[in-house]
Design a binder for these strands. Structure first.
Lengths: 361, 361
DNA sequence: ACGCGGAATGCACACGTTACCCATACAGGG
DNA sequence: CCCTGTATGGGTAACGTGTGCATTCCGCGT
């Protein structure tokens, strides 16, 4: 009785002696093989893609697998295949707040290709090294980061041969693959629109000092203004938040006569500026102060604000990011490419200009 | 030469014959063992927690590991340990939009316990079965879902012995573990505040039909109104979006005289109602129409709105969720517990009542 | 009749780690 | 000097799957 199925290399694990009728937590391919009367290899082949297996056996195995509620362990599979179908996603507080949907967009695209996301949420300004080392330990096939990574972390990924694509972010020193909105060009486009009508005293409300995106946007605004022969009256750095914009406006705008213009590095701060004008300073928008932002978040289109801003094509950016990463993983593309996506101007009601007919609200 | 290190069971993988100086992509514990002159078992022990290893050897091994940039493969470790330190997170569009930060809060708590998140973004109303089966194939230790799961999916998790905790969501039929804001009690509290002053004609703007949370909130509002002897003039179902609230308001509020009150099932719709009143219907808030919401999203506190609403303690809810899950994974708690967290009333400027001194804005 | 080729399947091993069981060294007490 | 207990390290068997190679089986051509 004990020697009946002695030939199978499977150790005693199942219904030999142990508990009474204790179903194993997760059925293995051996269980399916035993139930369907084939070898474990055949079960494995049934669950691979282009493996040669007769139709009749495939049906048998699939029936047994369904009966046992079996699906192959991706952990064990990854160990031998050297691919996990896991994409590491690095997100962080501010980048997630600007576009809460990017994770959903990226997730949709990633899952479309049969992969899953291993998400690591970085603390506000912590070390990225430990987190990167940790997700590399999970053998992710690639990494998408919407947070800035230090050079040591990028080098670690390169050493482990794990491709990285930066989302809406560029690395100043390192030559990293990235899909990025054209922040400079977008700001120049925005400034061109703003200076078409008398802009008055111009104030720039930039992002935090450490933010490369903020630097790009500030740079675009400066170059656009310079091209129009305008020098900004003030340039300050905000923290990308609504409250930060509101408080900055209070110090920047009060005590000046005549028309003014505020260009904020993102929408959240721009909306804070608007509310500061209306509720704290008693200024009208856009008659006294014209305000513009960058991002085109959902709130920018709300009737209370109707903010003139620059729209980032986030859905197309997400698709391009995932495609670039899959090409890097498959080896059909070389790393280091920077893909700039053109943003679109959204002229609404906070800038002093006619709204052209046919412009989306 | 070839038989010198014949005794090591390691197959020829390293610097025997192959390419010239080709460093392997990922160093293994064998590489570290060879470099530090110990056995592979010892390397493994160094990287486990409470393993007995002499201090001198530990230093040697750690130095070699650092030189090779080695860290143990969590894939291989999981295969033998039967624990992946992976938490499956199920999110979906609307639940993510209401609180973009919950993923960061939950992620912070999860990472605090040394685990990582495997995130699956569900399509708007797709089958949850396939997605659940897929993340179970990754051997996640537990699952947190902020989306509604059908009973088949929950049964699949139970079958695989993977505990599930629902975040801010209850399952009507299934006895599932959950951490949930007290939607009913919160709404009753809100209604008690609203009827303290003459409410006039009361309209209820509920969530989508399929949303259990929306049902709870609607139920709480109804019971609160009934307790005050008020029957709502209209009850309609919205889609949780700003635009949905705005359009619903247009149909609901126009053509009625006297004071009105709108209770929305979430803040986004409430804000849409406010803008519809002010910009589409020419009604004043709160003089003509009092508006209240639920969630206390960031925009509710903005000066343009100052929405009276119910605050959910999301940070504490996230902490409780992760703690409950870890207890279930460790076996120190039984499944099926429902933990109701008390919300807080935030009285602002869209309801017709005095703002008590000391109330947070 | 016999061999042969191709399709289908079984066998054994490898992936990189942890768990378990011993072997060894060393100290101390009799 | 021997025996024993303890601390430490080595060897080996899993974990559950994919895959190269051998083997079987069936059909068919000469």
């Amino acid at each position: 009785m004990a020697s009946q199925s002695e030939r199978t290399p499977r150790p005693n694990h199942g219904e030999d002696a142990a508990g009474p009728e204790r179903r194993p937590a997760r059925p293995t391919s051996y269980d399916v093989a035993q139930l369907s009367g084939v070898s474990q290899s055949t079960v494995s082949r049934v669950f691979r893609d282009g493996a040669p297996v007769a139709k009749s056996t495939r049906r048998k195995v699939e029936a047994a697998a369904r009966a046992l509620n079996y699906s192959p362990s991706r952990i064990a599979r990854s160990l031998i295949t050297q691919r996990t179908n896991l994409v590491g996603m690095v997100i962080t507080d501010p980048s997630n707040r600007a576009h809460p949907d990017i994770l959903l967009h990226l997730g949709h695209e990633i899952q479309e290709t049969g992969n899953r996301m291993l998400v690591v949420a970085l603390p506000r300004d912590g070390e990225t090294g430990q987190a990167l080392r940790d997700i590399l330990a999970y053998h992710v096939d690639g990494i998408i980061s919407s947070a800035s990574l230090d050079d040591a972390s990028l080098e670690m990924c390169a050493l482990a041969r794990v491709p990285v694509v930066l989302f809406n972010r560029t690395q100043p020193e390192w030559q990293a693959s990235a899909v990025c909105c054209d922040h400079v060009g977008g700001m120049e486009m925005l400034v061109r629109h703003l200076v078409a009508t008398p802009a008055g005293r111009v104030t720039l409300l930039g992002g935090p000092q450490w933010s490369p995106v903020g630097r790009d946007r500030l740079h675009g605004a400066m170059s656009g203004l310079a091209r129009a022969g305008i020098t900004p009256a003030a340039v300050v750095h905000g923290d990308y938040t609504f409250e930060g914009g509101r408080q900055a406006a209070t110090g920047l705008l009060s005590g000046h006569d005549g028309p003014q213009t505020v260009i904020a590095a993102n929408d959240a701060m721009a909306l804070g500026v608007i509310d500061a004008c209306r509720f704290d300073l008693g200024l009208r928008v856009p008659e006294d102060v014209a305000v513009a932002g960058f991002d085109d978040i959902a709130q920018a289109a709300w009737p209370s604000y109707r903010l003139t801003t620059v729209h980032q094509p986030v859905r197309r950016m997400a698709a391009a990011t995932v495609r670039m990463l899959t090409e890097l993983v498959d080896g059909t593309a070389e790393p280091g490419e920077l893909r700039l996506m053109p943003p679109e101007l959204r002229i609404r009601a906070t800038s002093r200009a006619m709204v052209p007919a046919g412009q989306p609200a």
